[in-house]
């Protein structure tokens, strides 16, 4: 049995996101080192702010500024940061309730180790040096000791960090109109995911044969139809297929279109003909490019044969064989 083929598959795109009013104000605010929340109908301040009240579903637009300092509500130590995460060195994931907010924001905390992190600890934002209007404008959080005297009540309870935090949390959020110069209305969020793709057993058999310039299909034990390329199962009967059969190499163009627009990254010049080809012995058409003939001379019923070039596994294209065209009746069931 030929080996199962695998290949890397990368799905990567820089998604362009329009923001809407609330995200726009929040992310523009981060650029300006200002943290905004939004007030819900029942008076809570949500940070980060959302457009719709999570309880009532009503639209909420009443923005308020909160402090860049806050309290860790829960945390987790990440000993092995992954590439795309905000810090290169081991860090803590934290939920931080900023002073003036009623809910917590997810971000990362730069700390020397898990021993230096605890629930209830005080932290502040360390701003990214370059800010564009993104959640990553908060570079990370860092541990923070409230300055004695900054808050009289807190200073009076020196050493009671959590009390101080509670006091600080009562500092009310200040109303904010959310207006900034040059507001950010969209962000680009690149996302790359890497996969290992396998076409499966039947396709691996088919691809191994293709590498030897043979085109194979598989015959259904039930309906006896030959499917090319094979998928290890008869799609109409739902039963496994195992009987290999070689088809073609000659076949008939059943239908086609002339492609006049160039696909990004495809090295094929336009116009070219993209055709459905029923190989002799196959019960359905496969798809391939037609070459070796001007595009406007390709016909339904034309007889063609595969042309391999270089080391490529797949035929580069199919060329006319010069045989007389097949009569419509001989392939109309394969359209």
């Amino acid at each position: 049995m030929p080996e199962i083929l695998t290949a890397p598959l990368t799905v990567s795109f820089p998604f362009t996101r329009s923001l809407g009013p609330v995200q726009s104000a929040f992310l523009t605010g981060l650029r300006e080192r200002t943290v905004l929340g939004v007030r819900t109908t029942d008076g809570r301040v949500l940070v980060p702010p959302v457009e719709y009240d999570p309880v009532t579903a009503g639209e909420i637009r009443d923005l308020a500024e909160v402090a860049p300092t806050g309290t860790v509500t829960t945390w987790a130590w990440n000993p092995a940061p992954r590439d795309k995460q905000p810090l290169r060195t081991p860090f803590a994931w934290v939920l931080v309730r900023l002073d003036g907010a009623d809910t917590a924001l997810l971000h990362v905390l730069d700390a020397p180790g898990p021993h230096a992190v605890r629930t209830g600890m005080r932290v502040r934002i360390r701003w990214a040096p370059e800010r564009t209007g993104a959640i990553t404008d908060i570079g990370c959080f860092e541990p923070y000791e409230d300055e004695p005297g900054e808050d009289e009540t807190a200073a009076g309870k020196a050493g009671a960090g959590e009390d101080r935090a509670r006091e600080a949390g009562h500092r009310p959020a200040a109303p904010h109109d959310g207006v900034f110069d040059a507001p950010v209305t969209g962000i680009v969020t690149p996302a790359r995911l890497d996969y290992t793709y396998t076409p499966g057993r039947a396709m691996s058999r088919h691809l191994a044969a293709l590498a030897e310039h043979r085109i194979t299909g598989e015959r259904c034990p039930s309906c006896r139809k030959v499917h090319v390329p094979p998928r290890g199962v008869c799609p109409t009967c739902g039963v496994p297929t195992t009987e290999q059969t070689e088809v073609g190499p000659h076949g008939t163009v059943t239908t086609f279109c002339v492609v006049n627009i160039k696909a990004k990254g495809a090295g094929i010049d336009v116009p070219y003909v993209y055709a459905h080809i029923a190989l002799d012995g196959a019960d359905l058409a496969l798809h391939a490019r037609i070459g070796g003939i001007p595009y406007d001379e390709v016909r339904m019923g034309m007889r063609v044969a595969p042309v391999w070039t270089g080391d490529a596994r797949h035929p580069d294209h199919f060329r006319p064989t010069g045989e007389p065209d097949a009569a419509y009746d001989t392939y109309k069931e394969l359209l």
């Binding site: 083929l5 290949a7 890397p8 598959l9 793709y197 076409p199 396709m203 691809l207 279109c257 492609v259 627009i261 160039k262 696909a263 990254g265 495809a266 094929i268 336009v270 993209y274 798809h287 391939a288 490019r289 596994r313 797949h314």
Partner: peptide, 14 residues
């Protein structure tokens, strides 16, 4: 892109 397949098509129209 799907590995082991020829990228032939220019969109759904094709």
């Amino acid at each position: 892109p799907v590995p082991f397949q020829q990228p032939l098509l220019a969109g759904a129209g094709g």
